[in-house]
Design a protein around this nucleic acid. Structure first.
Lengths: 231, 231
DNA sequence: GTCTGGCTGTATCATTGATCGCATGACAGA
DNA sequence: TCTGTCATGCGATCAATGATACAGCCAGAC
């Protein structure tokens, strides 16, 4: 489609560049026109409006977003894909903050369908999870939920002056929402559940001890648990 | 404080009114000045900038937000207060969409502290939860998490043309995040985590055994675990 | 009574979104 | 090849808006 209307595509790309480099996340129609060497009326003929240009930029952003998704997903495990999708979303947001806000922040006019199409993409990924029996909710409901959380977290990351890009927060949110949406992972959870159980009991013993065993017994138990837990 | 500078307050309120009624979530400095019967230079002397005016509007929005919070919280159960706080946040967003976006959507300049102060408010409410032993995370971390989810959900509600104001989505998100942040409220699941850990390890041993211990040791371990697990 | 300082309004500039009418060039048909 | 038609791009311009320079005015001090 960049072939059918090279001028249109050039203007969209110029607008996106200016949006990314502008300090206030704004663009000037004049500057966009000058960047591609045409005058303002062409812009208004092609896009009708500044809004129309911004909508086109947002949709173009969706194209890039979708391409990214298409390139990186489908490892075979749909749940793992979903996790990667969340992280990819966050990376996209941090790489293109202005474009991201244009796409995912509500604008009262905005005929852009970027957000809805991203929801569809996510719903499709979730349907694959549902086919694997890993989804507790209806795919579209789950998609809205996940996307809302993803956007909220991404905006939080954008708002902070990147003091410390805290991936822990993103992963916390991801785990919180996913555990509400997905079924418990089949059982594999721990490659070695015995070792996990031993570690857990050891921690509990160190924390509070027990009156069910004699001190000597407890001490020996501790040694055994250590041996079980050793790699 | 509306007493010390009535003119300033009047301009902020006029700006907020125009922001709420404008179709594109924008305001014109001229219109604000005319609304209060002064001319432009006063605005620039009071706020320095259009940005300054918007920041002041956002901060004023925080005042209203904080007043709402102060009025409705503190029922005695801090966790119940937290739930009410989430719903109150959503209600505030739906009642003042434009102001809400001004307060909680990242703007590259913006010296407004509204968002940080809301985080502080939330962290205080969470500290009360922590005092009741109901919090799994550090209050500030939990606050960022909850606020990000709350904002994401609110923006989703604003973005939708209010087709059907789906409170289910908001409550799903609330439950998902809260269950990740708060300890299990009812039944406390395991009054005795040591017993739970022992039960778990016993089950694992019966399932697969271990090569880390001699058979005799394993047998004795089993007996001990039984003793620990006994009510 | 006069002077000083702060405050306000008028007039104005610069930028930007948006539009009007004309020129230019391509193309179809005679 | 000539001519009429149409689409397309452009210079010029308008309207709205953010922002400012400068002069006038009023209160209070001396």
């Amino acid at each position: 489609m960049t072939e059918t209307e090279p001028l249109r595509a050039a203007m969209i790309e110029a607008a996106e560049r200016q949006l990314a480099s502008s300090s206030d996340h704004e663009i000037a129609t004049r500057a966009v026109c000058e960047a591609v060497g045409v005058s303002q009326p062409v812009l208004y003929r092609l896009f009708g409006d500044k809004r129309g240009l911004l909508d086109a930029v947002a949709d173009h952003g969706y194209e890039r977003y979708a391409a990214l998704k298409a390139a990186q997903e489908r490892t075979g495990d749909p749940v793992a894909d979903l996790h990667a999708g969340w992280d990819g979303h966050m990376a996209f947001a941090q790489a293109n903050p202005a474009l991201y806000q244009l796409m995912f922040t509500p604008r009262p006019w905005s005929h852009s369908t970027a957000r809805d199409r991203v929801t569809d993409l996510l719903a499709a990924a979730l349907t694959r999870c549902a086919a694997a029996g890993a989804l507790k909710l209806e795919p579209r409901t789950a998609a809205r939920l996940i996307l809302a959380a993803n956007i909220g977290t991404a905006l939080d990351h954008i708002a902070r002056p990147a003091l410390f890009a805290d991936p822990a927060l993103s992963h916390r949110m991801r785990d919180a929402v996913f555990s509400h949406v997905l079924t418990e992972p089949p059982a594999r959870q721990d490659a070695d559940p015995l070792r996990a159980a031993a570690l857990r009991l050891r921690a509990q013993l160190q924390l509070g001890g027990t009156e069910a065993l004699e001190p000597v017994e407890t001490a020996l138990l501790q040694r055994w648990l250590e041996r079980i837990a050793r790699p």
